[in-house]
Each structure stands twice: as structure tokens, then as C-alpha cells.
Design a protein around this nucleic acid. Structure first.
Lengths: 342, 342
DNA sequence: TTTAGCACTCACTTGAGGAGAGTGCTAAAA
DNA sequence: TTTTAGCACTCTCCTCAAGTGAGTGCTAAA
């Protein structure tokens, strides 16, 4: 696999970068002209024929130039890609963005704005997975009576994620009883991750406070629900950007992707399935068939060293990997810093 | 304008319904064959020429059939359209939907699910405007301390809309003071619409409680913000459905719409600009240029007789007006009933 | 007033021809 | 042995012309 001499690597690099720019098959002449490789077109042709045989390039038809195969992109991403840095414009945009984000105190809002910004700056579609309540830790819980028979439960977690739920109140409970139960739960559960609140563990609490079972039941049920039910907390930005990509000028291809964009559960799955840290998934390396012509670059973000969510950029396999990678790294690092201060 | 004899109306009706079904220009032969109008194609041709001159029909080119003009659709919607009723399938789908919705206690969730369902059942794109906090009435407010310097304000309104905001806490405030201020606000503001909380009115409260200005200021600022800042609370469903419409097989046209779909502020504007009750906006009757080839059918929903939001369906001007109208009427009426019980 | 007949229009399809970009192969040059 | 120039070849894409078919407008007869 690694048996590519330097010349082949240079040529592969030229093909990939040119194709990323132009979206047109790259011919041997183009390379010998534009890419300061001191070789004639004929020699390059021979090398390209080799690269094709080795699986790094493909030819749409006999008399066309070459385009990178998935394996070609993979090699480019792993070994060939130049490190880039942010342009001044991008730098300024991010500076402005983060001074705005710093004013927001809620993770949800921050994450939503990040998704939008990510798509604006990359000009691709962005996907952002907000912290799942499951992975958050219990901080405190409050119960606010609304009417006779309804109350609002507010659950605050350490990730700054706040969840409301209106519940039916069992009747004939006085405020004192409620306060007691809530105080007990706050003391008992503080710092525990929501996911750890299994039916098992909750049962124990139930028996501890058996004389308040009515209200306790309602609250514990809510927690149990939070721990079990997967939440779809994925935000999409710049979906219309895919229309700028020539590979999606075909309406049928578009339909598959746009339909996918409306299926929050599956998007969540994609983002959860990604390895921690920075990840680049090319073409069929993505599990979903709809994404076989797409690449997804993601980075996880963390709180107290624990990964709590993912930001990602989705584009055609012909994506500007280097640029997007730089941007994602920068944004996720800034995001981590910001979350730390919440 | 109204000078259409019965025969012309019959023919116009035939053209519109046929075109809605097929998306192809309708010829005179098709009408005389399929629509039980006991006239020859030639006669119908003459009438169609008249209808064109009167502005109800258009011809894409000389030797093609006719398609309805915007004015043609308008006449159809106002005078010609047959009343339809729900199919059994639709009926069952709605029954299932609303038994689900009844279990939800929060307006936001209800509205989101309604948007999705509306797009599924109509097979068009749906737009739903959730209650604006401005138009809601103050019910109660709570302040939950989080850390030393932060607190969570929970604002509950009569529309079941709950708003959280994390605020910076002025230091050196004891719980007692806070409770006092919150209790005062709850008493003073109960039942008032948020929009009525102008700077003017709030100033009075400020002077009433001048000895607690720190915490009071923070809370009042939050309320003022809610009263002023327009919120974008619009939900979109089934955006990918527009891809099934032949009129949007052109990627350029699509781009305009999809880009619009990402601009929440402008979508909100569209839905706010609509008349109360049922409204049908055809083509350029919509203010936004992007929607000049679309029609929008909307209905407002109410609480205590006050309109608090809008549900709508967006499709091509060649939309199945009758079917969609029936569905929207049904859903909004059921939604109204449901909201009343919250 | 309605209808049959007919010439006419115009989009759409098909196929042929030519241009252009790029290839693979061969033989000469380095 | 490696590189390069030359050349025939392949395949897409564009254009153009001819043919097809759906539908029209007009005219004259019913």
C-alpha cells in the first residue's frame, strides 16, 4: 500500500488538489504545466497509469483525465495534505464569533451558533451534536408548581444543559413534602451522570423514601426517561451549501441527502459513531449509504476531559480537507476553552 | 373580473385540476375527453383563448396547452374549488397524531410535532410558528441559584411556553432578598402580556422596589429583552418534499428556496404577515421574491380567543389547494382544542 | 352557435458530423 | 534505462438538421 515513490506522491498530490479545486478530471498536460513537476506529460501519463492500477486514481472514461479514488483521498489525507493556517478573514470571523458566544451562558445556544458559523466559514454543511443529557452530570433539580395538578421540573446539569419538563402532579401533596423530596434528590444525586441512573439504582432511592412515593415516583420516572431515551440534539447548518457542489446538481442525489438531513435520529447516530478527537471519514467509510459520496470531518469537544459532543463538516468527497481540518481544529479548541468557563 | 359564464368556469376548473395533477399544460382535447363537458375540442379551444385573454390562463408557447395563471388559481381558490373531506387514511393518521400530542404538556414540543406531521400528511413543506413570548401572558417567574455568580431564571407563560435564561448574579444578595423581589414580580405582573412590559412600565416597578435594584434590574432587563427582541420560533418540516415537485427540478430555483429555509427571521416574517384565520397566498401575493412560484396556505391557532401562532403549508402554485385546505383546517381546529386544555 | 377539417407552430427527439481534450503506444533521444 | 516527442485513437460534448407529435387558430359547413 505504501509503495509510492516520491514522484508518484507528488503527482497524486497534484491530481487531488487540482480536482478539489476544479471538480474536473485532471489530465497529464495540466499537471506538467501547472504543478512545477519537471516532467513531460508523457511521463506523467505513465505514472498516472500506474497510480490507477494501484487504485489511487480513476478514469471516468478512456479519454478523460484522472480523478482521485476513495483510496487516493485517503492517502492524500493521511500522508500528502499540506498543513494550512487560517486566513486573516477566517481569523477575524472566529474572533468575532467567540466574543459573541462568550456572552451566552447556555450550551444549547452556543452549539447552535457554532453550527451556523461552521457552515458559513467552511461553505459546507455543518453538523453539530449538542451534549446529551445522558452524559451530563446531575447538578440540581427544582420543582415549580404551575397549576393544581401540574408542575414544572427543571433539571440543571454540569454541562450547562437545562431541561424542562411539565409533569402531572399527584394531588394532595403539600409544598413541604415536595421540598423534602427534592432536597433529598439534590443531595443524593449531585455529580452523578444521568446515564448512571439506571432503574436498578433508582429503585434504591425509592425504598429510602418510601413514604413519599407519589412525588418521588414522578421525579424518578422523569430521570429514568432522561437516562434511557436517546435524545436527538443535532443541529444542522448551511444545508443549502451542498447545492453549490457540482456533484449534487442531480436532483436525485440531492433528495437522498436532504431527506437524511431531516432524520435527526440517523444524523445523531452518524455523529455518535465517530472516533474521539479529530476524525475524517471519506465516502463509504461513513456507515450511511446516503453519504457514500460525502466526506465528514469531525472533532469532539470536552468538559472536564470527558467528550460531551461533536462538531462536524459534511461535504463531497472532493472536499477541501486541509482547510476544513484547520478550521475544525481551531473551532473545537476554542469551544473547549469556552465550555470550561461555563 | 367576475364575468365568467358557467361554461368558462367549468373549463377553467378542468384546466386547474388537471394541471394540478399532471404538471403538464392542458390541451383542449384532454378536457373534452376527460372532463364530461359535452363540447368539442374546437369549442373549448375558443373558450380557452378567451380565458387566456381575460388573464386566467397562460400558454408556455404557441403550440402547447394552457396552464393556469396566478389569477386563474386565485379564481379557482375563491370560487371554483370543491370542498373535500379527509381520506380515511388521513383521518386515522390525525387521530394517532393527536393522541400522541395530548400526552405532551409543552407547547413547543406539540408545535414541532405538528410541523412534521403536517408535512408528512400533505407531502409538501410545512412551516409552523410557535407562540411568541411577546404575545404570551406572564404567569410566573422563578430564580434558581446555580453557582456563586450565576442563576437560572425560569419564566412560565400562560401559553405553556417556558423560557430559561442563565443570568449573572450581582453578588452579595441573600436568598431572602431574592425571594422577596421574585414574589413581588409574580404578584405584580401576573396575567400581563410580555409585550406590554415596555421600558416605560418597567421603570415604575423599578422605583417601587428601589432598595433591591441590583437583582431587580437583572430580572427586568431579561423581561424587557423578551418583550422587544423578536424571537425566531419557526419550525420547518419536510423541506425535502419540494424536490418531488417538477417545478423545482432546476437546482437554481431550489437554491433560493433552501437558502430561505435557513433564514429563520424571514420565515418568521412571512408567517407573521399572514391574515388571521385561514389564508391562501398565491405566487407573488407572498411578499418574498423567493416564493413567487409558491403558494402558502396558513391558519392561525388561538388561546383564549387570542391568536398565538400559525401553521402553514408551502408548495408550488400548482398545489392541491382543496386537499391542503381541508387538512389545515382540521389540524388547526384540533390544535386549538388541544391548546385549550393545557 | 357549434363542429369538423386542415394548415401551421413549436418543443422535443434522434442521429450525424466535427471539435477538443486526453490517452496509450512506439520509437527516438538523453 | 529513463524520458520524451509524435501520432493514432477514443470518447464526450456541442451543434445542426430532419422528423415527430401535440396542440393551436382559422375557416367553412352543419
Amino acid at each position: 500500500m505504501a509503495g509510492l515513490n516520491e514522484r508518484k506522491q507528488k503527482i497524486l498530490h497534484a491530481v487531488v488538489t487540482d480536482y478539489i479545486q476544479t471538480a474536473e478530471p485532471v489530465g497529464s498536460r495540466t499537471i506538467s504545466r501547472h504543478y512545477k513537476i519537471a516532467l513531460s506529460a508523457a511521463t506523467i501519463r505513465n505514472e498516472m497509469a500506474d497510480l490507477e492500477e494501484l487504485g489511487y486514481l480513476m478514469q471516468p472514461h478512456t479519454s478523460a483525465g484522472r480523478i482521485p479514488s476513495q483510496q487516493g483521498y485517503r492517502f492524500y489525507v493521511d500522508a500528502l495534505m499540506d498543513a494550512t493556517s487560517l486566513t486573516q478573514e477566517e481569523e477575524e470571523y472566529l474572533a468575532r464569533l467567540f466574543t459573541q458566544l462568550e456572552k451566552m451562558r447556555e450550551i444549547d445556544q452556543i452549539v447552535q451558533h457554532t453550527a451556523r458559523a461552521l457552515s458559513v466559514i467552511t461553505r459546507y454543511t455543518s453538523l453539530v451534536l449538542a451534549p446529551q443529557i445522558k452524559q451530563s452530570a446531575f447538578k440540581q433539580m427544582r420543582l415549580i408548581p404551575m397549576d393544581n395538578d401540574k408542575a414544572l421540573v427543571v433539571l440543571i446539569t454540569d454541562t450547562g444543559y437545562i431541561r424542562n419538563k411539565v409533569i402531572e402532579m399527584p394531588k394532595a401533596l403539600n409544598q413541604q413534602e415536595i421540598d423534602l423530596v427534592v432536597a433529598y434528590l439534590n443531595k443524593e444525586l449531585s455529580g452523578q451522570t444521568i446515564a448512571s441512573l439506571t432503574s436498578e439504582r433508582l429503585r434504591k432511592l425509592r425504598s429510602d423514601l418510601y413514604y413519599h412515593t407519589d412525588i418521588l415516583n414522578v421525579l424518578l420516572n422523569m430521570l429514568e426517561l432522561c437516562a434511557q431515551k436517546p435524545e436527538n440534539r443535532v443541529y444542522l447548518g448551511g444545508a443549502s451549501n451542498i447545492l453549490n457542489q457540482p456533484e449534487f446538481k442531480d436532483v436525485e442525489k440531492l433528495k437522498h441527502l436532504l431527506t437524511l438531513f431531516e432524520e435527526d435520529e440517523r444524523l445523531t447516530m452518524v455523529l455518535e459513531n465517530v472516533t474521539e478527537g479529530l476524525s475524517i471519514r471519506i465516502g463509504t467509510e461513513n456507515v450511511l449509504a446516503e453519504m457514500k459520496d460525502c466526506s465528514l470531518i469531525t472533532a469532539s469537544y470536552h468538559l472536564h476531559g470527558r467528550p460531551i459532543g461533536t462538531i462536524g463538516v459534511l461535504g463531497p468527497t472532493r472536499m477541501e480537507y486541509a482547510r476544513v481540518k484547520t478550521i475544525i481544529e481551531e473551532i473545537s479548541s476554542r469551544l473547549n476553552k469556552l465550555i470550561g468557563t461555563l
